[in-house]
């Protein structure tokens, strides 16, 4: 995804600060995506088999 739009006061801190912040945002996004994928797999393992079908259908589309 594109870098987030930062306030001018943050941009004024310089390119290094902006780059570090955008890196941290990207890492947070990736971490969340990984956790969401792991949560999906965990949910499928946790639900009892009678509802596993509907859970899979709703969560995977």
């Amino acid at each position: 995804m594109d870098p987030i739009d930062l306030p001018s006061g943050i941009r004024a801190l310089g390119p290094d600060a902006v780059a570090r912040l955008q890196t941290l945002v990207g890492q947070a996004e990736q971490r969340q995506a990984d956790e969401a994928e792991a949560a999906l797999q965990t949910a499928l393992q946790l639900v009892p088999w009678p509802v596993r079908g509907i859970v899979r259908k709703v969560l995977l589309g």
Binding site: I4, L6, I10, L21, A28, E29
Partner: peptide, 24 residues
């Protein structure tokens, strides 16, 4: 590295990151 940033700007960044994470 954000120690010289204004509190209001940090709050704007927090809101922008939360928006991004929700959309992601």
């Amino acid at each position: 590295f954000l120690q010289d940033a204004l509190v209001a700007d940090l709050a704007k960044v927090r809101a922008a990151v939360l928006d991004r994470l929700l959309e992601r």
